Amino acid sequence: MQIPDELFEEIVEGTTKLLVPIKSITDKVPPKEPAFFNPKAKLNRDLSIIAYASFLKKFEGPKIFLEGLSGLGSRGLRVANELQVDNVIINDLNPTALKLAEHSAKINNLENVKFSEKEVCRFFSNYSKKGERGSIVDIDPFGSPAPFFDCGIRATMHGGILSTTATDLQVLNGLFQNACKRKYGGIPIRVEYGNEIAIRLVLGCLRMVTGRLGVEMKPLFVESDMHYYRTFVRILNRPDQEENLGYILHCKNCSNRKTALENVKNCDLCGSENKIAGPLWIGKIFEKEFVQEMLNQIPNFSVEKNCEKIITKCLTESDMPATYHTLDEIASSLKTSPPKLEGIISNLKEMGFLASPTVFCPTGFRTNANIKQIIEIFSN
């Protein structure tokens, strides 16, 4: 394929050269043709590189990266160029995207990259046998990743990492509840912390599929952005014995919220009716040791400065309870102006409660105090 200079441009992301369509950079919405590339997803790819480096630091098996929906291969090529991996296999149904990926591989002098043009589940099925699976498997579709969970899990080796992106935010945030139930097996509710519920629905769906396949998945790291949700989970070839699927109960009257294994109709504090989200993942969403290693890896890579701030917040909240509150939410109920985040966190800690900021919202905080206790502290 000839590469017309007027249609394509060479850029550098991380330390990797990428040939991309010029309109992907100049247009407000990157076009899907001739190949899709989203420059605004650089932070997503930066965090992926850091997460994969953290995983590889302690992984002793064959280091094989499988990318099912690669576009022009920006993530896979960065993995091949910036990480110590044995093989990278990039797959996409768009032949033009693959040609661009091949060209980018050549200008980076990469010899550990192979290319595949198959439907994504046919691609993953080629690597679903023991000894042929990937140690890192990536699924980054337009819309929902749920149709690819089964084949992606089967293509992930024992102890490997599966990362997925969801961009069907309206479905996961409660605008189309029936669609969410069909795709993810659970129902969201419209609340201030809807992005966390969305990620827990994705994790809950992954847990349902791994449970059916007789394997275990353990969340390592998650990411929430205006345009996507991304999850990183470890796949282990053993049945999951923990009770980690349940519900988030949110009181319509007082906004008290909690996680529970069972669907509970009424609020513990005021007796009013609960909104109920789920079934979804109610366990931890950050593995503290893994997130700490991500922080340690940052100096080794050329990534956005914001990565350190994001990962530091994730580490701070890694042991905190599920769901968060926002300053505006509490201030609105008291009809007062919101205080500073640092002040409320400090006051909660002084009263003996756990408290931390959250990466999910700049004015959000996590705590084990209930809503009545929070409002009392706000009022003082």
Rank of each mutant, 00 (worst) to 15 (best):
M1K: 03
Q2F: 03
I3A: 01
E6T: 05
L7N: 11
E10R: 04
V12K: 11
T16L: 07
K17F: 14
K17L: 14
I22R: 02
D27K: 00
K28E: 14
P30F: 03
F36V: 07
F36G: 05
P39Y: 09
A41E: 09
A51F: 06
Y52A: 08
L56T: 06
F59L: 05
G61H: 06
P62V: 02
E67G: 01
G73E: 07
R75D: 03
L77M: 03
Q84S: 06
D86K: 09
N87P: 04
V88W: 12
I90L: 12
N91G: 00
N91E: 00
D92A: 05
D92W: 00
P95Y: 12
A97R: 02
A97G: 08
A101G: 09
H103N: 06
I107K: 05
L110N: 10
N112R: 07
E119L: 07
S128K: 07
D138W: 08
F142Q: 14
P145I: 14
F149G: 09
C151R: 09
R154Y: 06
I161E: 04
Q170M: 15
Q177A: 12
Q177D: 12
Q177G: 03
C180E: 15
G186D: 05
I189T: 05
V191N: 02
V191D: 08
N195H: 15
A198D: 15
I199D: 09
R200L: 15
C205V: 15
L206S: 02
T210V: 11
G214N: 05
G214I: 00
P219R: 13
H227N: 13
H227Q: 10
Y228A: 01
R230D: 01
T231Y: 01
F232Q: 05
F232M: 10
I235V: 14
L236N: 04
L236K: 06
P239Y: 07
E242S: 05
L245W: 10
L245M: 13
C254S: 01
C254N: 03
S255D: 15
S255R: 12
N256K: 04
V264P: 06
K265D: 08
L269V: 10
A277C: 13
G278Y: 14
P279S: 06
P279Y: 06
W281N: 02
G283R: 06
E289Q: 09
F290G: 02
L295P: 04
N296Y: 01
C314Q: 04
A322I: 04
T323C: 12
H325S: 03
E329M: 08
I330M: 12
A331R: 08
S332M: 14
P338T: 11
P339I: 10
G343W: 13
I345H: 11
S346E: 15
K349T: 01
E350P: 00
S356E: 05
P357T: 08
V359Y: 11
V359P: 07
T363D: 15
F365K: 07
R366V: 08
N370D: 15
S379T: 12
